[in-house]
Structure formats: structure tokens, C-alpha cells
């Protein structure tokens, strides 16, 4: 059932994102062409096409963000919810399908932005030198850290994913809480977001001060005596992953509880 939900979530969103990326790439290409054909002393067309490009680029990220909110809010918490919540599936699968696809498009939009920049500025030698630089960088990383460089890469990717997930889930949880109110649901959602962020920050400060009082950093510093810097960095990254993971889980539990037990469709 989750697979089917993912399929429909992609269908519902691809019809927006794919044309959007196509427009972005086309504008990037036009930019490239204009800077290629227009003489050096004529600046106006270049500037105008660059402004259009930047507007579209910013617009793409705004749309990515809005779609993330809208797919959850409209599809689950308005009339469309009648259809989604009477499907023979569990609410958590609905949440997960929205979350996965939102993460997917956020990453895709990021990649699309890079590609569009390449289209405007890069020539073939540029691209090839970029790749050689990248390979060189990886090689250096490997000689420096050995096998653990793979671990670093994996850890950083995981951090990005978990970070994105918890960022999206706090929005879902806010909308779910806002939906509990009979009136001014959107305003209540914004209020819920502020409250959730504040609570999160308080918890974070609390955690840090607890760790501080336990003299964790002293221990870590001491460990550098017999372990090394590398382990400390790994531990640091894992701490971030763990913290973001706990937050993401918390937001997910809130959202799932409300959608399972406190659904309040108009």
C-alpha cells in the first residue's frame, strides 16, 4: 500500500516539478546563449535574462516549500482527506509517503539548481576539471582518513536526510496541531510551529547543559589523548544525527497520533 501511495504522491507532484525544472533549464540555456551571442558592450539583455533566471530559481525553491505544505494540508486535512483517510491503509503510511516525496523533491530542486548553474557558466573543460577536482578531493580525503572517509560521506548524507526529515516533520506536526482547532486553523498552525520550535530549542539547550554538566567535552578532549580527532568528529556527527532523529521521531509521533485519533475534518 505504501508503494501505491508513493506512486500517487509522485504523480500528483511531478506534474508541477518537471515542467518547473524544464523552465529553469530553458531559462538557464537562454542565459548562456545570450551571453554567448551578445557583444561585450551590450549589457542589458544579459542583465534582464539573469534577473529572470534568478527569479525563477528563487521561485522554484518557494514552490518546493509551498508544495511540501500544500500536499500535506490540502490532501489530508481538507475535503480530500475524506478520500485519503478512508483508503484501506494506516495514517502513518500517508505521512511517510508525503515525507519521502517532499524530501525527494527538495533534493531534486537542489540538484536542478546546480545543473542550471552549470548550464550557464560551465564549459566542457570546466566540467571535466570540476570532475578531476572532485576525484582529487575524494582521493585526498581517502589518504587522510582511509576507510573512514566513506563513513564520513555516509554520515554527512544521513545528516542531511535526517535534518530535512525533521524540518519537514515539524511543519507536518504544526499543521496537524493547527487542524485540531475549529476555527483559524492556519493561524493555529503557525502558532503551533512557533511553540514547537521554542520547545525544541529549550530541549536542545537543556541537553547541551546536561552534557556540559557531565563534562562530556572534557572526556572527549581527554580521549583525544589515546584516540584521535577523527573519532571525536564522528561522535559529534552522530550526536547531531541522533538529536535530529529524536526530534523527527517526536514530530512524527505527534502527527501520527493526531491523524489517527483526533482527526477533525470539516
Amino acid at each position: 500500500m505504501l508503494r501505491k501511495l508513493l506512486k500517487y504522491e509522485i504523480k500528483a507532484t511531478a506534474r508541477i516539478f518537471l515542467p518547473l525544472y524544464a523552465v529553469l533549464f530553458s531559462i538557464a540555456l537562454i542565459n548562456r546563449l545570450i551571453s554567448f551571442i551578445s557583444p561585450l558592450e551590450v549589457q542589458a539583455p544579459k542583465i534582464i535574462s539573469m534577473i529572470i533566471y534568478i527569479t525563477i530559481l528563487v521561485g522554484m525553491f518557494v514552490i518546493t516549500f509551498v508544495m511540501m505544505l500544500q500536499r500535506f494540508y490540502k490532501n489530508l486535512l481538507t475535503e480530500e482527506g475524506y478520500l485519503m483517510f478512508t483508503l484501506p491503509t494506516l495514517p502513518w503510511k500517508l505521512i511517510v509517503s508525503k515525507l519521502f516525496i517532499a524530501i525527494m523533491w527538495t533534493i531534486a530542486s537542489g540538484i536542478a539548481a546546480y545543473i542550471s548553474i552549470f548550464i550557464i557558466f560551465m564549459d566542457f573543460t570546466g566540467i571535466s576539471s570540476l570532475f578531476t577536482a572532485l576525484i582529487e578531493f575524494c582521493g585526498k580525503l581517502y589518504t587522510l582518513f582511509g576507510l573512514s572517509s566513506f563513513l564520513f560521506t555516509a554520515e554527512i548524507l544521513l545528516t542531511i536526510l535526517i535534518g530535512l526529515a525533521s524540518g519537514i516533520l515539524i511543519l507536518y506536526a504544526s499543521m496537524a496541531i493547527g487542524h485540531l482547532f475549529n476555527r483559524h486553523k492556519i493561524l493555529a498552525s503557525i502558532g503551533a510551529f512557533i511553540a514547537l520550535s521554542t520547545i525544541t530549542q529549550i530541549l536542545f539547550i537543556l541537553l547541551v547543559s546536561i552534557l556540559h554538566s557531565l563534562h562530556i567535552h572534557d572526556i572527549l578532549l581527554e580521549t583525544t589523548n589515546f584516540l584521535n580527532m577523527e573519532v571525536t568528529v564522528h561522535l559529534g556527527i552522530w550526536f547531531i544525527i541522533l538529536a535530529a532523529g529524536i526530534l523527527a521521531t517526536g514530530y512524527f509521533v505527534i502527527t501520527n497520533y493526531i491523524l489517527s485519533n483526533r482527526l477533525n475534518l470539516e
Binding site: 490532501n75 478520500l83 478512508t86 484501506p88
Partner: peptide, 16 residues
């Protein structure tokens, strides 16, 4: 839900 077919008084279809 597998065996219940429900017609709400709302229109719940995805507009697109």
C-alpha cells in the same frame, strides 16, 4: 475500510 464504500456529503476528489 476494505469492505466499506463511503459517499461523503463533500466532494473529495483531487481537482487536478
Amino acid at each position: 475500510k476494505k469492505i466499506v464504500s463511503y459517499l461523503p456529503e463533500k466532494t473529495y476528489l483531487n481537482e487536478w
